[in-house]
Write a protein that binds this DNA or RNA. Structure first.
Lengths: 193, 193
DNA sequence: TTCAATCTTGAATATGCGTTCAAGATACAC
DNA sequence: GTGTATCTTGAACGCATATTCAAGATTGAA
């Protein structure tokens, strides 16, 4: 026997960055071999094809984002400061030109829309899973009496998710940092009203 | 002499629909020749290249959207019903599977991001022009005393635009019509607060 | 040390793409 | 009616792409 030589997580993080930077279709296999250090044959052996590598990258992305979010929640003792930090983490890179300014899930979903049912499903599922995890955080805040129960956690979570999508797109139309942070504030104010 | 035989506006509307349906890079010249009825040579003669056809389509799209918006504003006597109708026009196709469910400007911007400076500029300019026209409508509503002047027209317009971007992305994650119209309501409520 | 199982390598393949261009068709001026 | 300027046509071109595969390299067990 002989085991694979590459570090799967490392490869997937390099791949996801490349996908975020150039989008799915403009990320050529050549770019992927350069970014990951793997040769075409190895990629095809480990992930079937380009789409397989995308799906594996998406899985890794979601895993990383979930961990980040859990840590962020653990390090704040009230929902307002937690979500404030969360939105700042989104808005700040948005105004920069880093690859991480976009969301792998929404960018790919928008690009792939109507082209591949499987990828669309996976992305949608991951996005709604994250909405539910926001909902659960809001529910906990209700239990602790930090926010009222009148607009339900679900409604709040939906509006927040919509706002995040909007923020990201808004940021891509030109980096008005001032407006972006003002919009984040207003969004948070409304969600925690 | 001899004049061109095709109807430019018709051709551009067919092209823009194709671009909205498949995205820029997956819209092949073959698809465009089928959709427009023009042969490759004619397209290259009239629009230089694929990118030129995109830019011309974007111009036509913006012109059409501006006309629609002006008519919509003219047919409502208060801002609330006007914007309500406007959001409904956005949200309803979003929940369907028509090509018009996406916005040519944002979809293309997201796909092209970081690849072509000229297209990025044109799209961003068009989007902020539309934000300003929303701002102007809000200003008129202030003059008529329909809304207070406290959150400025600019701030309201920015939040509304962010919300529209968010609505569109939210819609693309799965067509929960119920949630979509509820989100529209909340958005409107907050913008006209 | 030997051998076979497995992984790595990267050139080769087939396909689809945007673009060009020379030949043919057409319309208008005279 | 004739000539010419212009438009239309679509086959052909070069290029980039995703994918394959057979040869070479490496591992670990016997």
């Amino acid at each position: 026997m002989r085991s694979a030589e590459f570090d799967r997580e490392h490869v997937l993080r390099q791949a996801m960055t490349t996908f975020m930077q150039h989008g799915y279709s403009k990320t050529s296999m050549q770019k992927l071999t350069q970014a990951t250090g793997l040769h075409p044959g190895s990629i095809y052996c480990a992930f079937n094809n380009k789409k397989g590598l995308l799906l594996a990258s998406v899985e890794q992305y979601q895993k990383d984002k979930n961990e980040q979010f859990a840590q962020l929640c653990a390090s704040h003792n009230n929902i307002k400061s937690a979500l404030h930090a969360f939105l700042a983490d989104i808005a700040h890179p948005c105004a920069s030109s880093e690859a991480t300014k976009v969301c792998l899930l929404t960018r790919t979903l928008s690009e792939i829309d109507g082209q591949d049912e499987e990828v669309t499903q996976v992305l949608s599922n991951n996005l709604s899973a994250f909405e539910r995890s926001l909902e659960s955080v809001l529910n906990k805040a209700m239990d602790k009496g930090e926010i009222s129960s009148k607009p339900s956690a679900k409604e709040r979570a939906q509006f927040l998710v919509m706002g995040i999508y909007g923020l990201r797109t808004y940021a891509s139309t030109g980096n008005d940092t001032q407006a972006l942070s003002r919009l984040s504030e207003q969004l948070l104010e409304y969600v925690l009203r």
